[in-house]
Design a protein around this nucleic acid. Structure first.
Length: 628
RNA sequence: GCCACCUUAGCUCAGUUGGUUAGAGCGACUGUUUUGUAAACAGUAGGUCGUCGGUUCGAAUCCGACAGGUGGCUCCA
């Protein structure tokens, strides 16, 4: 386990002290307002702090945030000094019991027992108040301000007046010690910064993030929808949204097909037997969508994953070591009955599509196969302009893993070799492996610095065993293949959610649902004919083009194309008709330079078609500011 | 599943402490206009106020259940 927080430079530790102090002040205010409160833990977290409290029957609402904020301000304005002192663990427990702080008592008793047991079932990062160690603790730290005292490891700032700028954000539920079976407490979240300016900057950043929320853009850009009649967590995609899906999965498939993957197809319903064999039934049975046959006695389920089906295809034929590796690829939808509260936008849904693939290979082929997949992931994320780093997730020394230790060791070594060879940024972590094998998790960073886990490559020693998969080796004996699961986009829906926010809806030409929009200056026949003609020509180049010849002003039509974030807009009027040339208006983010030179229609279309084909971010075309 | 909050026209939102025919902007439609790079003008239609039940002389407004959503917790093969 790690230290509570790593001391970076001075600034970092100062802001940490401020956030700890703010949590402390929050507790001060709450205790003043509701003296019967039972305090849980109140750590500093990224951008702020929170405190978990138990108020019994009293349920806080947003209106209470104002009251609490006012009380906190009073404490801050009083500029009470923070006094730190240590108590022996016995004294501390006595204090907690006298003050009826049952949660603190529990924590202190655990600390007294032994640091290691605490470390095991507590996330010390969340604890905040409690120091982490490997042995029993004999004294703990307290902070006092005014007549409020709280168990707290600190550090704190000198006095309440120096805690910086804060804003209470929200109230939510949180289970005591993060365990669903424990009591649910109320968590009050706040953000805290050294200065008012920094706080405002952070709040502005949140506003920006809200503007590019994929749910909002999905509506505005006409990409996807939900329907009450269909059900929650079951997204549907419009023609525009479907273009995005098809282009992305097409690219993902193309990358792997170049490495010998073959497409397969499986049905979406299966007998539940399949998952009893795979072992998923015991672990995830409650999240299966069940269906019943009205004709037979079959108990059926919608597939929650694809590997067991693909295993059937592998097992359909006898395999020789010469056939290996066998590589299947399928973009297909899976269904998982997530708990209702866990759904949200496209990030967590009940039907989602995986760009799934499975490699069945000999143990000596693992590294080479991983190599190909890493190359593909690298190219895909470069193309969508997201930075990638990978986590090598290994087993630890516990016995929670299946397969021989030796198999794991060679597999982990091959995993690492492949990653090193790929030159991707990586880090290693023990204890993060799946029970059936080590894995590579990809973290992609978006345009506003948030990291998302999207792609994953997993080795699997278990399913080949459970399904009795085998191939005949050179020695004439039967051998077990190793399976490699891989999805480059992960879930297409989640990827789109992230990607829409990454680009703020300004998709590069190859992905743009509408690549070119043609506007007519008037509705005279000759103008409309030229526009329609241009559209037909563009379609011959495989481009997605719409004509806007509505009875509106050019300004208005430009505005509407801008709102839809169309990369290229061409206006057709007298000038274009007589010259046969166009002056494309180019969306700002893909524009490199401007010029006032009109280009020929053919030249324009050829360039755009090439850009779409080569999936570039920027255009080589020169736009004009159109001062005609 | 748990905690808190939200749901009014296709979209974004007003709607005073429960009180007559629930409003606006955008969008749609019709007409006028024939438009040159981010919003022409006028008119028309569009709502059982998420659904069901309750309290009340009277409910968009208060209460309950359900559905859907948002932020967290828990979970995520």
């Amino acid at each position: 386990m790690l230290l509570l927080f790593v001391m970076g430079d001075k600034e970092d530790s100062n802001i940490q002290a401020m956030r700890h102090s703010l949590a402390h002040i929050l507790a001060t205010a709450i205790t003043k307002l509701w003296p019967e409160v039972k305090l849980g833990v109140g750590p500093a977290v990224e951008n702020g702090f929170y405190y978990d409290i138990d108020l019994g029957e009293k349920k806080l609402s947003d209106a209470d945030l104002k009251v609490i904020t006012d009380e906190m301000r009073k404490v801050i304005n009083a500029n009470q000094p923070f006094e730190q002192y240590d108590l022996s663990i016995e004294e501390a427990i006595k204090w907690a019991q006298e003050n009826k702080q049952t949660y603190k008592t529990e924590l202190l008793n655990d600390l007294k027992r032994a640091g290691t047991t605490v470390a095991k079932d507590l996330d010390t990062e969340e604890l905040g108040t409690i120091t982490d160690s490997n042995s029993a603790v004999d004294s703990v730290s307290f902070y006092k301000n005014g007549d409020f005292i709280d168990l707290c490891r600190g550090p704190h700032v000198e006095s309440t007046g120096k805690a910086g700028a804060f804003k209470l954000m929200r109230i939510s539920g949180a289970y005591w010690r993060g365990n669903e079976k424990n009591a649910q407490m109320q968590r009050i979240y706040g953000v805290g910064f050294e200065t008012k300016e920094q706080l405002n900057k952070h709040l502005e950043m949140l506003e920006q993030a809200k503007k590019r929320d994929h749910r909002k853009l999905g509506q505005e850009l006409d990409l996807f929808l939900f329907s009450d009649l269909v059900g929650s967590g079951l997204p549907m995609f419009t023609p525009r949204g479907t273009v995005l899906r098809d282009e992305l999965t097409g690219f993902s498939n193309q990358l792997r097909q170049s490495h010998g993957f073959q497409k397969v197809w499986i049905p979406h319903v299966t007998k539940t037997e399949l998952y009893k064999v795979s072992g998923h039934w015991d672990k995830f049975g409650s999240e299966l969508f069940l269906a019943e046959s009205q004709e037979t006695s079959d108990k059926l389920a919608l597939k929650p994953m694809n590997c067991p089906h693909h295993n059937q295809i592998f097992a359909f034929q006898q395999r020789s070591y010469r056939d290996m590796p066998v590589k299947y690829l399928e973009t297909t939808t899976v269904y998982r009955d997530e708990k209702s509260g866990e759904l949200g936008g496209l990030s967590r849904v009940r039907s989602f599509t995986q760009d799934d693939s499975h490699v069945y290979c000999r143990p000596d082929q693992i590294e080479q196969e991983l190599n190909h997949l890493l190359l593909d992931a690298d190219e895909l994320y470069k193309t969508v302009n997201m930075e990638l780093r990978v986590r090598l997730s290994y087993r630890d020394e516990s016995n929670d893993y299946l397969g021989t230790k030796q198999l794991w060791e060679t597999a982990q070594k091959q995993l690492k070799n492949a990653v090193v060879k790929s030159e991707l940024e990586y880090f290693e972590q023990d204890g993060e492996a799946a029970f059936y094998g080590p894995k590579i998790d990809f973290m992609a960073t978006d345009a506003i610095g948030r990291e998302h886990q999207l792609a994953t490559i997993q080795l699997d020693f278990v399913q080949p065993e459970r399904f009795g998969l085998e191939y005949t080796g050179e020695d004439g004996k039967k051998h077990r293949p190793v399976m490699i699961h891989c999805a480059l986009l992960g879930s297409v829906e989640r990827f789109l959610g992230v990607y829409i926010e990454h680009t703020a809806g300004k998709f590069p030409v190859w992905l743009a649902p509408e690549q070119i929009r043609i506007l007519t200056v008037n509705q005279e026949k000759v103008t409309v004919d030229v526009a329609t003609n241009l559209q037909e020509k563009a379609r011959e180049y495989g481009l997605r083009v719409e004509v806007d010849n509505t009875n509106e002003s050019v300004g208005k039509k430009i505005r509407s194309s801008e709102l839809m974030k169309v990369p290229y807009v061409v206006v057709i009027g007298e000038k274009e008709i007589s010259s046969g040339k166009v002056l494309p208006r180019i969306r700002k983010d893909i524009e490199v330079q401007e010029s006032l030179e009109p280009v020929s229609v053919e030249g324009f279309l050829k360039t755009v078609a090439n850009e779409a084909k080569s999936r570039v971010q920027k255009t080589s075309l020169m736009s004009s500011k159109h001062k005609i």
